[in-house]
Amino acid sequence: MIRTLARRMGRRRWFARAGRLLVPADRLVSRLTRGRVVALGLIPSLLLTTTGRRSGLPRSNPLLYVRDGDAWVVVGSNWGQGHQPAWVHNLTADPSATVTVGGAEHAVRARRVDGAERDRLWALLVAEWPAYPAYAERAGGRPIEVFRLEPST
């Protein structure tokens, strides 16, 4: 029931503002539970750890994901803000990253998707979080990047 309510409310501006404010708390909970609890377990979420493009330090962000075969798919919606989230710039500079899902850590390599593949993955993401089209509209024409995080060997 709470998940359904969150999915409905996700389109509203106040929800996006509140969500942005809760991200630091979500990072803390994710860290304390070693990635077993992300987004309070309400939506499928992972902890993405990238390398800061300027600092060189690890940067972790809780993100909604969908599965696509053996990969995880994430979107740089940034709650509909007019700028890309920092993690998008970090992945662009260095596509090697780590995802923590359900407490298990996986090395991944990010690949930005476009064209028909992006359309297919975008549909999967919207099915999981119906607010994404509203975020894209609020982003004011900025491209909403979609990444496929593929396991590294």
Results as ranks from 00 to 15, higher is better:
residue 72 W to L: 13
residue 72 W to I: 10
residue 39 A to K: 13
residue 74 V to M: 04
residue 55 S to Y: 00
residue 67 R to G: 11
residue 44 P to Y: 11
residue 49 T to V: 05
residue 69 G to P: 06
residue 73 V to G: 04
residue 37 V to G: 03
residue 69 G to N: 08
residue 35 G to N: 10
residue 60 S to I: 13
residue 39 A to C: 14
residue 57 L to V: 08
residue 69 G to C: 09
residue 47 L to T: 15
residue 40 L to Q: 11
residue 60 S to H: 06
residue 51 T to W: 03
residue 62 P to G: 09
residue 38 V to T: 13
residue 57 L to W: 09
residue 36 R to F: 03
residue 45 S to C: 12
residue 37 V to T: 10
residue 72 W to Y: 14
residue 38 V to G: 03
residue 64 L to C: 11
residue 72 W to D: 11
residue 45 S to K: 00
residue 36 R to P: 00
residue 62 P to A: 07
residue 47 L to R: 12
residue 57 L to H: 14
residue 67 R to I: 11
residue 67 R to D: 15
residue 71 A to I: 04
residue 48 L to V: 05
residue 65 Y to A: 11
residue 66 V to A: 08
residue 70 D to G: 12
residue 57 L to N: 09
residue 72 W to T: 10
residue 37 V to S: 01
residue 71 A to E: 06
residue 56 G to V: 00
residue 73 V to P: 03
residue 54 R to M: 01
residue 74 V to I: 14
residue 35 G to C: 02
residue 49 T to A: 07
residue 53 R to W: 07
residue 71 A to F: 04
residue 60 S to E: 10
residue 35 G to D: 09
residue 61 N to P: 02
residue 59 R to G: 01
residue 36 R to N: 01
residue 52 G to A: 03
residue 72 W to K: 05
residue 57 L to A: 15
residue 50 T to D: 06
residue 61 N to I: 13
residue 67 R to W: 08
residue 66 V to S: 07
residue 37 V to Q: 02
residue 61 N to H: 13
residue 47 L to E: 13
residue 72 W to G: 03
residue 36 R to D: 01
residue 73 V to H: 02
residue 35 G to L: 12
residue 37 V to D: 01
residue 58 P to N: 06
residue 60 S to D: 07
residue 45 S to D: 05
residue 35 G to S: 09
residue 52 G to W: 04
residue 44 P to V: 00
residue 64 L to H: 09
residue 68 D to F: 09
residue 42 L to M: 15
residue 63 L to N: 12
residue 70 D to K: 09
residue 66 V to K: 07
residue 74 V to R: 09
residue 67 R to T: 15
residue 73 V to Q: 00
residue 38 V to D: 02
residue 60 S to P: 08
residue 54 R to G: 07
residue 62 P to C: 08
residue 62 P to N: 03
residue 71 A to M: 07
residue 56 G to Q: 05
residue 55 S to N: 04
residue 50 T to Q: 12
residue 63 L to H: 11
residue 62 P to T: 04
residue 51 T to E: 03
residue 46 L to Y: 00
residue 73 V to R: 03
residue 64 L to A: 15
residue 70 D to A: 15
residue 43 I to Q: 14
residue 56 G to R: 02
residue 73 V to N: 00
residue 55 S to H: 04
residue 65 Y to Q: 07
residue 70 D to T: 14
residue 59 R to N: 02
residue 40 L to F: 15
residue 46 L to S: 01
residue 46 L to K: 02
residue 43 I to Y: 10
residue 58 P to C: 08
residue 73 V to D: 00
residue 46 L to C: 03
residue 45 S to F: 06
residue 42 L to K: 06
residue 55 S to M: 06
residue 73 V to M: 01
residue 72 W to R: 14
residue 65 Y to T: 14
residue 46 L to Q: 00
residue 54 R to A: 10
residue 40 L to G: 12
residue 54 R to L: 10
residue 62 P to R: 07
residue 55 S to T: 09
residue 66 V to I: 09
residue 42 L to C: 14
residue 70 D to Y: 02
residue 60 S to G: 13
residue 55 S to I: 00
residue 64 L to G: 14
residue 55 S to G: 10
residue 44 P to H: 07
residue 59 R to F: 02
residue 62 P to L: 07
